[in-house]
Every structure is written in structure tokens, then in C-alpha cells.
């Protein structure tokens, strides 16, 4: 653990990403305690009001301006981050669990199971993910559960491929061979001996997947297939504000920035995490 933080502080990009991520997550978690204006209630009279710093802590202040129905953009951004992070994390974990299990299965069992699963992965890779997501959400109807489901579905293949490759080499290692020799069951070997050894790559894939899924979630919301208004979501804010791009820049700029910063922080942190766990790059330092 001590080494972990030491290495993190020595990497500028990694540290920047980690700090930013901590701030974003903290804001999302603490949102209800920040005394922000209600993100779902607007004042039509204060519609598309520009950012103002006067009387910052008074109830009528909108430090990032208001949107097209007069709702506070700062409040919508922070409450929107809860939705985005919740959807993205759930999808990543769900996709991770399914992908890891199937990856271990394919790698350890080999043969027919391996062929079947990897062809499934190939088929899904051949279908544009965005198109697939659009079709499914359009068919099932837009709701948070469906969006999570779709995002998880687009995500499991990446885990499955990488985990399978890991398992292929782990399978030949002595500790697996000896477990097999003393008569351990296949399930026991897969989950007690192999699983702990693929957790690290799964974690790395997870962080990189998180960034991709945040963008995809924003894209689905942008197309109106994500969370329904008035619940705030970043993609939706972009879509609704783009009509007013020339007259009210703040309505799209801040949600856009929020997406960029979040994805950037996750990516930087994820990159560092990959390097940290990769023995080759670590020994090279």
C-alpha cells in the first residue's frame, strides 16, 4: 500500500487523474449535503441566465448559469454525476463479473467451450456497439435498468478476451498443475487458484472500460435514450442545450467539460494503474 501511493505521487499524470477522480466522486457522494438548488426544478423567468458570481452563496445565484427551463446548471452537473457514475460503475462491475467468469471458463476449459465463447465475442465485435445499444434501448424502452444492461452487454467481451489470454498461460503454471494433480475440482481451480491471479488485469480493464462507458452513457442520453427528464444527466444536458449554442454557451460548455474531465481523470488513473501492475514497465523504471 505504501509503495502504491509512492508510485502514484511519482507519476504526475496518474496523480492528477486520481485527485480529480477523488474530487468528482466526493462531490457526487456529498451532493445532498451541499445545499444546492433542486436540480429538477427551474424558474422559467430565469431561463438561460448566464453564469454569475455575485452573491455566490445566496439562494438565487447560478455560478454556472441556468438551462433552457431555468434550472441551476451547477446543481444539475453534480446531481447528474451521481447518475452517470452509478450507471457506469454498475455496468462496469456487471460486465466485469460476466466477462471474467466467461474468460476463465474459455481459457481453462478450452476446446468447444472456448471456441463457442470466442466466436460469440467475434460476432459481437463485428456489430457496431452504438448501433447495438440503440437497437436494444429502443426496443426495451428507455430506463436506467435497460441502459445499465446494454452498457454491460457491450463491455463483457473486453474482459473475456484479456482474461482468457491470461488464463491460457496460467493454466500451464506449476501451482495450477499441482492443484490438478492432487485432484482439485475444475471449479475449485478456476475460482480459488486462477481467479485471484486475473483480478489485476480485470481491474485495469475495468478502469479503462469505465471511461468508455461514461462516454457511451452520455451518447445514449444525448439521443434521448438514457434517463428521462427532468432527472439530470450530462448527455441530455448537452442535447437540450445545443440549440442555444450561439446564444447561451454555458448550457453546453459545462456539461461537455464535466464529461471531458471525468473521462480524462479515469483514463489517466487507469493508465497509471496498468503500468503499476505491469511487471515489465515497473522494473524498467
Amino acid at each position: 500500500m505504501k509503495h502504491f501511493f509512492k508510485d502514484l505521487t511519482s507519476s504526475k499524470a496518474g496523480l492528477f487523474g486520481a485527485v480529480l477522480l477523488v474530487i468528482i466522486v466526493a462531490l457526487a457522494l456529498l451532493a445532498p449535503m451541499l445545499h444546492l438548488p433542486d436540480p429538477t426544478r427551474g424558474d422559467l423567468r430565469a431561463r438561460l441566465a448566464g453564469p454569475t458570481w455575485d452573491g455566490l452563496f445566496s439562494p438565487g445565484a447560478h455560478p454556472l448559469g441556468t438551462d433552457e427551463v431555468g434550472r441551476d446548471i451547477l446543481s444539475r452537473l453534480i446531481f447528474g454525476s451521481r447518475m452517470t457514475l452509478m450507471v457506469a460503475c454498475t455496468a462496469v462491475v456487471l460486465g466485469g463479473i460476466v466477462g471474467t467468469i466467461l474468460g476463465i471458463l474459455a481459457g481453462y476449459k478450452g476446446g468447444f467451450v472456448d471456441k463457442l465463447l470466442m466466436r460469440l465475442v467475434d460476432i459481437q465485435l463485428a456489430i457496431p456497439l452504438m448501433l447495438l445499444a440503440l437497437l436494444i434501448v429502443a426496443a426495451l424502452g428507455p430506463s436506467i435498468q435497460n441502459v445499465v444492461l446494454v452498457l454491460a452487454l457491450t463491455s463483457w467481451i473486453r474482459y473475456a478476451r484479456i482474461i482468457r489470454a491470461q488464463v491460457l498461460s496460467l493454466r500451464e503454471r506449476e501451482f495450477v498443475q499441482s492443484a490438478h494433480a492432487i485432484g482439485a475440482s475444475t471449479l475449485r481451480i478456476m475460482f480459488l487458484h486462477i481467479l485471484p491471479n486475473v483480478m489485476t488485469p480485470a481491474l485495469v480493464v475495468g478502469t479503462l472500460e469505465l471511461a468508455r462507458i461514461i462516454i457511451m452513457d452520455a451518447a445514449l442520453s444525448f439521443l434521448g435514450l438514457g434517463v428521462q427528464p427532468p432527472t439530470p444527466s450530462w448527455g441530455r444536458m448537452l442535447a437540450d442545450g445545443r440549440v442555444y449554442l450561439s446564444s447561451a454557451w454555458w448550457a453546453v460548455t459545462f456539461p461537455g467539460l464535466a464529461i471531458v474531465l471525468t473521462v480524462l481523470s479515469v483514463n489517466l488513473f487507469g493508465d497509471w494503474l496498468r503500468d503499476y501492475f505491469d511487471p515489465k514497465t515497473r522494473s524498467a523504471k
Binding site: 429538477t40 427551474g42 427528464p229 437540450d240
Partner: peptide, 10 residues
């Protein structure tokens, strides 16, 4: 229409 609907819903 999106704006009107949200205003009316409120």
C-alpha cells in the same frame, strides 16, 4: 416541446 413538457410537469 421538450421545454414546455418539463415546465408543465413542474
Amino acid at each position: 416541446g421538450e421545454e414546455v413538457t418539463q415546465a408543465v410537469a413542474q
